[in-house]
Amino acid sequence: KVKIAGPGLGSGVRARVLQSFTVDSSKAGLAPLEVRVLGPRGLVEPVNVVDNGDGTHTVTYTPSQEGPYMVSVKYADEEIPRSPFKVKVL
């Protein structure tokens, strides 16, 4: 029921550039959304989540370095389908 889309989860994500993606939970009811961005060697990146007021949230983060990242998206305390997402930061 929760959908996710945006360039911040795709290929070609650049280090030190603001990345974003949208989480659409409009068909999933009200529940807490939790997003974690883990970088190389367990680095935890700050994440900004904005409630758009229409059942969607815009998530932004800036990867601080190149390497493999994991983006975990939980809704109602459960990983959404395909989460955690593997993101290769260049």
Rank of each mutant, 00 (worst) to 15 (best):
K27W: 05
P63N: 01
E34I: 13
H57I: 05
T62R: 09
D54R: 09
S26Y: 04
G53T: 10
T60Q: 14
V2N: 03
L9G: 02
S20L: 08
S26F: 04
Q19S: 06
E79H: 12
A5L: 13
Y75E: 00
S26P: 04
A76P: 02
V47D: 02
G55Q: 11
I80G: 02
L38F: 15
K86C: 14
V17P: 02
V44N: 15
G12L: 12
P68C: 15
G55H: 14
T62S: 05
S83W: 00
D54S: 09
R82E: 14
V73D: 01
R36E: 13
D77M: 08
V44D: 15
L9C: 06
S72K: 08
V49N: 04
D54V: 05
H57P: 01
V71L: 07
T22C: 09
A76L: 05
A5N: 10
S26L: 06
V37S: 02
T60I: 06
P63L: 00
G6S: 05
S11T: 14
T22E: 08
T60D: 06
G67N: 01
M70A: 12
T60N: 13
A28C: 07
E78D: 07
G42Y: 05
Y75P: 00
D24V: 03
D77R: 10
L43E: 14
S11Y: 09
V47K: 02
L9W: 04
P46M: 09
G29L: 09
V71W: 01
Y61G: 01
S64P: 10
G12T: 13
S26R: 11
A76T: 02
E66W: 10
V59Y: 07
T56A: 06
V2I: 13
R36Q: 08
A31S: 10
T22R: 07
E78F: 05
P7R: 07
G12E: 15
A31M: 10
L18R: 09
S25G: 07
V37E: 01
G8T: 03
A76Y: 05
G8W: 03
L43Q: 11
P84H: 03
R41K: 14
V49M: 14
E45P: 04
P40V: 05
G42E: 10
T58S: 09
G6W: 05
K86N: 15
Y61D: 00
V37D: 00
G39R: 02
V44M: 15
G42Q: 14
A76D: 11
I4M: 09
M70N: 15
Y69F: 06
H57R: 10
V37P: 01
K86G: 10
N48E: 13
A31K: 09
E79G: 04
T60L: 09
P46G: 07
V44H: 15
L33K: 04
K3R: 09
G67I: 00
G6Y: 08
E79Q: 10
K1L: 10
T22D: 07
V2K: 02
P68D: 14
K27S: 14
S25C: 15
V23Q: 00
A28E: 04
R36H: 13
P40S: 04
D77V: 02
V35W: 00
D77Q: 09
N52L: 08
V71G: 00
D54L: 06
D24K: 03
S83G: 06
E45Y: 06
Y75R: 02
V44F: 11
T62H: 04
T60E: 13
Y69M: 05
E66Y: 08
T62L: 09
R36M: 10
S72C: 07
L43I: 13
